[in-house]
Design a protein around this nucleic acid. Structure first.
Lengths: 154, 154
DNA sequence: AATATTTGGTATTTATAAATACCAATTTCA
DNA sequence: TGAAATTGGTATTTATAAATACCAAATATT
């Protein structure tokens, strides 16, 4: 019986040169986006990066924000920093006190290191916050969802 | 008895040339910021603009975002669009259905016209949303406040 | 009535963010 | 073992957002 490899949107497939080609940008730009916190690529056993189809779609969205919507890289970082990750993760008050993501507003939560809180042993790349909420529209939807939940519980 | 003129931070004082000088920018740039939705200047009986001390402080903050934090004008607009104004105003579900601010994420609420909702007869310039929440830090604080309120009521 | 300023445009300049090009060292894999 | 690709860095180019300059018409000020 031949071994079946499970393939989905999150399967690491493309090396950096292929990913860059798919996006129509240079390899270096891709790494720039990584340093900005827009993408957490897979690192296979080796030091080389691999990108999944979801990664490509994510980066296409970021690209539209930069090129079409004229939002600067720093601007996107600030927007991502507004995401109420704590309400998704349901971390404790104590966790929040020590959490750089909760207490700052410059970068997305996955850009900070998570020592001494609920995220410590979790992988940001498989976290709902990272996977779902990286653009304006989705972040606003989440904020609306939270406020409506609040009101219905009053 | 001499008539006392009440002066506070919100008193319209400076014509556009003075305001520009105080901010170290050109008159035209100031009008650019106005079109972007960063400032709603007073219009005296005439068509000429007047700016208050609060207006100046507000614009200094916007200026820092642009020049120091490197957030583009479009980026600031998006950030302002994430403000949950509806939770401050406490507008009805019906209001929200018809509200452009609630249903979009490109501009701050005061940039849309408010027909057929609770804001219709209110002046944005004196609204808490406009006066308080125009920068990243304050908007994030508000989002935190809302989520914590929610949790304490569970 | 004459002078100042403001208005709302467009056209131009400038500052710089975003992207590219190039590098030597390292890693991968055929 | 050698060829091809990736790494992480700096230096350079390019695209364009942000700001300025300039305009005639309208408005305000003395």
């Amino acid at each position: 019986m031949r071994s079946e490899i499970i393939q989905n949107q999150d399967t690491p497939l493309y090396p950096i040169s292929t990913a860059a080609k798919l996006l129509g940008i240079s390899v270096h730009t891709l790494r720039m986006y990584e340093r900005a916190g827009f993408i957490l690529p897979f690192q296979k056993e080796s030091s080389h990066r691999l990108y999944s189809q979801s990664d490509i779609e994510r980066l296409k969205c970021i690209r539209r924000a930069i090129n079409e919507d004229k939002i600067s890289i720093a601007g996107i970082q600030r927007i991502q920093a507004l995401m109420p990750c704590w309400d998704v993760i349901k971390c404790s008050q104590k966790d929040r006190e020590h959490c750089d993501a909760f207490n700052n507003h410059a970068y997305a939560c996955w850009m900070y290191n998570h020592k001494k809180n609920i995220c410590e042993n979790l992988d940001c790349k498989s976290c709902q916050v990272y996977k779902e909420f990286y653009d304006c529209a989705r972040i606003k939807s989440k904020i609306i969802e939270i406020t409506e939940k609040h009101e219905s519980s009053l």
